[in-house]
Write a protein that binds this DNA or RNA. Structure first.
Lengths: 195, 195, 195, 195
DNA sequence: AATGAATGAGTCTTCATTCAT
DNA sequence: TATGAATGAAGACTCATTCAT
């Protein structure tokens, strides 16, 4: 009977904001910037989102869920931990790297709304279980307690994210490919398996 | 050698701002917050610093330089790369971890003013040179190009920083000690040397 | 005689708004508050009322008319001014006091739309005519001109309304009963008649 | 060493706001109206007052205190309750009536910030004590309990205020003088004393 | 040099009303 | 007629920085 909320507009706001937040930062992006960039009237921003904060939250949550969903789908194809690790390295990470804006926001100013630790926990558990299955006889596994392995995963994952983000925005002289390669070598070396 | 009154004020502003920036974030800290916390008149802030941005810059630059200076001093005591690595792990990192506020600001909202990449570059070169000297016969070094080793150092270092920061502010279930331990194991394992 | 569905909605809007206006004030009640409270779609509000302003107007006008109608009906039963005064005091006032929301709105923020003076005028004339009939030999009447008696009625009536309203919303330490009693005493005393 | 806050500006804001609040109502007066009318920059409003609400509060509190102070000063000149009543009627009330804007705001929309009941309580106590001293042998006092006399004072005072306000803004056909006169007659009649 | 009032562009958000469906 | 998304002017307030004193 009345216009129904347009998914298109919602997505437009989300995508525009994502780019702006990643480029200029959350605090340096004003609602009025989003308005200008989307071409929508101010009011419309607020018919689709409660406030500016909710926009970042949704960007992060939906972005992360998306990645996760695709990862889970890929995981359905196999039970072999080696295969799973391969999927993680060759599907998940590249996809994540693709979404530099998401990484930037995830690590950036909006940390308060980002619940990075929750995302990390999920992922850590997952990776940890794969590593455990893989690491029957590796040096790495022998010398590290469970908690230390978890720490290792967290450190490594955060390092990767931050490095990729930095590689994009500043001239640190390394590329995504460099990062991908050392990840693989590390896994191979640490796990004693060739991925 | 007594500090002048002005130097006291400069330091007061710096320390107060550092705490505030680390606790509430750069953008959520107003100059007026700094004024309230220091008890100084607003004008004073601007006689010591050009603007809010310069305050963060100085916090980071001086903080980093401090760490660096002490590292260099420690390095004077030896030429042995193994010893140097030890210093890095047992002096530099703990000191850095001590200064969580600095890490938080370094990785946080003020990224634009932080020149993280420059700091990283210095450090990377240094660590890289040590690793190279150490790694005569390690598997790690054989399979990684120079650039990849640099990438590894960056990833690892950023990972450590971010993990320590996160461990402080959220319940991710790992401690600074866990992190320290896996760093050591990694070095040992990767380099084939016992530190 | 069954109320039509639309009449139900109109009344719902009116009653809900009345409570809201009395509780939170006219300006602090948004149309969207009315929408939430009634459960009706915004559009509906505007099919029944031209705008927010008209809602208050109708609340007041219909509320007042209601009281008046009942008063007039009661008055039909007698011609005796003393009886009429009794009706005024024992039927009309208690009924009015019953409707605190109406009083609150009448005296409150919506004064611009309320035409309080018109309501007052009607009532003043009525009361005045009764008083005149009653006051053949009272001290009060002798010493007051017509205009002054009107002023007295207005002052008294407004005072009663305001006091009742204040007694409801704040702890001024007097009750509706106290007010009713002094009204009666005043009339008795001023008019020299026992009501 | 720096400009000090200007009492002139504070007063300008207060007076301008008072007129605007009385004329258009608190909610229909925007801070920007005050800005336009005073010619001050927005920021200045907020260097002198925390927010819009505080402006009304100060208008009312200082206005009321002013009246009170002058009343107390006048009261110093006598101990005779009859004299005091005279002062109340011939000094205080006329002064109050002079300040119609204050009355309008006091009774108007800003009721939430106005603490009308507190003002009323003070005054009621004062008047009550005078009446008590006066009323040795009056009919009024005999037939009314303490609480009822308080109620009477409240009703009467509120009625006067509201009537004066209404007389100013709408054509209810009575004047301040009419009101003053009936007040006197009422006192005389009720107290049995000639003021 | 020290002070803190002055400034006004800019912030996010609200809201009564309209109108496409 | 019923609906609720769309609209954008207007709202209160902030804040980094300047500059008169």
């Amino acid at each position: 009977m009345a216009r129904s909320k347009s998914e298109d507009k919602r997505v437009l706001i989300l995508q525009t904001s994502k780019t702006l937040f990643a480029d200029k930062g959350f605090f340096n992006t004003s609602v009025s910037d989003i308005v200008k960039e989307t071409g929508l009237p101010v009011g419309s921003i607020y018919t689709y989102f409660k406030n500016k904060e909710e926009i970042v939250k949704v960007i992060i949550d939906e972005g992360w869920e998306d990645l996760n969903t695709r990862l889970q789908e890929n995981f359905l194809s196999t039970k072999d931990p080696k295969e799973k690790m391969k999927i993680l390295l060759e599907e998940f990470l590249p996809e994540l790297f693709e979404d530099l804006d998401l990484i930037t926001i995830l690590l950036g100013e909006a940390v308060d709304y980002t619940k990075l630790e929750e995302k990390l926990e999920e992922l850590t558990k997952l990776i940890f279980s794969i590593l455990k299955a893989l690491s029957g006889n590796s040096y790495f596994a022998e010398s590290l307690s469970k908690k230390e392995m978890e720490a290792a995963v967290i450190v490594y994952f955060l390092g990767i994210l931050h490095a990729v983000r930095l590689a994009k925005s500043t001239p640190i002289g390394i590329s995504q490919d460099d990062i991908m390669r050392i990840v693989k070598v590390t896994i191979n070396s640490a796990m004693g398996v060739e991925i």
